[in-house]
Structures are given as structure tokens and as C-alpha cells.
Write a protein that binds this DNA or RNA. Structure first.
Lengths: 209, 209
DNA sequence: TGAGTTCTGTACCGTATGATACAGATATCG
DNA sequence: CGATATCTGTATCATACGGTACAGAACTCA
């Protein structure tokens, strides 16, 4: 168990020597490293170098390698996930989906290099032999499916989609394309082409107009 | 460079002591291991155990770890890829796409466990820091895109698709859904649900009937 | 102040890793 | 047969790995 601060409740003053690094900033550095190299190919030397910490500090704050990864992915969901999902809030379904996919493309080709999605480019490799990774992956997928499904249901209510539409499958389709966009990004596909694919999907899902 | 047989041209009789194992069978065992554990998390001990060979034999026949992986993926493409693509040959587009996706689902939930697609579940993790992996991934994607695109073009010629259809983007969409199906499989999604998603895509792409 | 507590940095531990040297075994070739 | 070539198995190499012990530093609390 990490002896120290979970990301949320941060007691203002703790008893002993205060830590000399920023928790979230270090976690971001770890995330970048895992994102770039994947879980298994990332060593603690890679991590401590990127985080600019020495090993005991890392272990005290985050736990072992697996725990660091879990925390990093959790932060990824909280940050990149929130940014992405709020694009879904736009009033017209067409804009909502387009915005959502544009946000995915932004993240996948973002300022840290064209590294795709940290989840769907690094978790699947571990999910084959690690039950923890499999669960993390399944949960992330379910979360995304759920958010999109909710948005599609709202579109049905607003008569933007036919009442007979298979909302669940449609949502899973959109999630799937989002995944494929980020894998393509990691393979080197330029933004322009990713945008074309995204537009094609939006065109298929929301026909009328 | 491996001193010995490339998978194709196999000289009937070589000079020294003949090898006591089957090349393709050993390669299959390596593929299973990489498929299950990913590249980085697979050690040579894992490989030699699965292949039932000792290290020098592996190195002599296949080269170092990276070369073994490349050969395994190449074999995966040749075997699973061919099976999958020949489903595309069915006369009606609807059946062709359905058969294609069904083959993907078969592979991804197949007899070796629900391990998804060996390419899109293990290569992306390495593609972030290995240019060789990035290229392999890009090439595999391009190959799949190309095959589907050709099938869609045939459908346009047969008036199963509108002449105005954006065949390239549509093909990339189908490829993307295929990827997402196999990632979902690795996350534990049951076949039934994967089938529903596949049917939804087919329904979207080929409207009339 | 001094006791108690937590963080930092060095140095280290045991093991697993990718890769190879070498000797013996088994084949072809002349 | 001997010469040559390739494969197999053992034993080993240097290094990189995840993880930790320990001493000193820096803070709070009384």
C-alpha cells in the first residue's frame, strides 16, 4: 500500500519531511513513459528517469511497477477521458460525434507524439496474460460504450435517430472506430486521413441531414 | 541472419546434421507465446519452453528475439490472414463482409483462448518505441485496408454500393471495426456480442437488400 | 529543544534476461 | 573411410531487471 497521498484528498500538512516533487506531475511523466513504450518494455529506470525521482521515492508514493501503471492509466482516464467525453455534450448528434472523434484524434496524434490511445495501444498486450490488465481494459471499454450509448439514446429521444436503431451496437461501433483511429495514429497515419475516416463514420451513423 | 531455411524455398537435403524439429511447428509455438503474452513480456525461456527447443537451436533457425517475432507475425499473416481474406470472395457483399468479420471473430476467440488478433493486440504496444514494429503494423493495416477496398470496389461495379460511395474510407471503417472486435475479444467480450456488433456494421455499410 | 515521522539518495540484493562458447552428435560429400 | 558442415545440449556470460536496506535530511509536534 502506498504510504502517501491518493490523488484526491491531500492533507495540507503531513507529519515528516515534505516531498519535493509534485505527485500529479510525476504521474504524468510515468504515463508518458508507459504510453510511449508500453507496460512490459518500460523499466523502472525509464520511469525514474522520466519522473526525475529515485526509486524509493517512487515506491513510497506509488507502489510497485504495476501500481504505477494502474495509477497512470487512471489519471489518463480522468484527464484525456474527460476532455474527450465532454465533446459529446454538443446539442446536435452529428456535432457531438464529430467532436468526440476529433478529440480522440487530437489525443492520439497529440503533443507527445503520435502515440495513439494509452489504453488501447498498451493494455491489450498485457491483457492476454494478466487478469488485472484484462479487467482494466474491459472496464475502460465499457465506460466508453456507456457514454456514447447514452448520447445516442438522447439522440433517439430528440428524433435525430430512428427509434428502432440498435443503440447498443451502434455505440460499440463508434467506440470501435475510435480505437482503430488511435491504433492507426500509432502506425503513422496522418491526421488528415484519420479525419476522413471519422467523417465517414459520422456520415454512416447519422444519415439524415 | 538465420543460417537456415526460410519458410519457403526448403532445400531438400542440406549438408550437416539435419534438424530434429519442424520449422513451422516451432514457429507456431512461438506465435502462440507472443500472441498470448505480447512481445516485451515474452522471454526466451518462454519461447524455448513452448517451442521445445534449446536456445542455440532457436537462434540458429530464427535469429534473435526480434527476428523470431517478425517471423511469427509473418506466419500469422500468411495463415490466419489468408483464411480471413478468402471469406471476402463470396459473391454478395453482405455475405462477404459478414463472413470476413465472422472469421475475425473466430480467430480472436479461437481455440488458443480469447486472445484477439495477434497483430493489433501486440504490435501497437511496441510501435511507440520501435520503428520496425511501427512499420510492421502500418503494413498489416494497409494490406487489410487494400483487400477490403478491392472488395468494395467490386461491389460498386456490381451496383451493390452507390457509385458515389467513399470506398477508401468505408474500407478503413471496416478494418477498424475488425480491430475493435479483436480487442474486445481480448477484453473478454463473448462471441455473441461480437457477432451483434459485426451485424450492425454490415447493416450500416450495405443498406439496400 | 528533542522526539517522532516522512522523504531523499546511495548502494545493494537476488534473479531473470538476451545472447553465446564449446563440445559432442549426426548428417553429406568425396 | 576422412573431411566438412550443421544441429543439439550444457554451461556460462555480462547486463538489466524489479525491489529494498539504510543512513542522513527535513519537516511537525510537544
Amino acid at each position: 500500500m502506498p504510504t502517501s497521498a491518493p490523488p484526491d484528498a491531500r492533507p495540507a500538512r503531513r507529519r515528516g519531511r515534505p516531498r519535493q516533487f509534485d505527485y500529479d506531475q510525476a504521474l504524468d511523466a510515468a504515463l508518458q513513459t508507459f504510453w510511449h513504450r508500453g507496460y512490459a518494455a518500460t523499466s523502472l529506470d525509464h520511469l525514474t528517469a522520466a519522473m526525475r525521482l529515485n526509486r524509493p521515492s517512487v515506491y513510497a508514493a506509488f507502489g510497485n511497477k504495476e501500481a504505477i501503471y494502474a495509477a497512470a492509466i487512471q489519471r489518463y482516464v480522468a484527464v484525456a477521458g474527460r476532455e474527450t467525453l465532454q465533446a459529446l455534450a454538443r446539442p446536435r448528434l452529428r456535432d457531438a460525434l464529430a467532436g468526440f472523434l476529433a478529440a480522440i484524434i487530437d489525443t492520439a496524434t497529440g503533443r507527445y507524439g503520435p502515440n495513439g490511445c494509452a489504453i488501447c495501444c498498451t493494455l491489450p498486450a498485457e491483457a492476454g496474460h494478466s487478469e488485472a490488465a484484462r479487467r482494466q481494459l474491459a472496464e475502460a471499454i465499457a465506460q466508453l460504450d456507456g457514454a456514447i450509448q447514452a448520447r445516442l439514446r438522447a439522440a433517439v429521444a430528440a428524433r435525430e435517430l430512428a427509434a428502432a436503431a440498435d443503440v447498443a451496437s451502434l455505440a460499440q461501433l463508434v467506440t470501435g472506430v475510435a480505437f482503430s483511429l488511435s491504433i492507426r495514429a500509432r502506425a503513422g497515419t496522418p491526421r488528415r486521413e484519420l479525419g476522413r475516416i471519422a467523417r465517414a463514420l459520422v456520415g454512416l451513423v447519422v444519415r439524415g441531414d
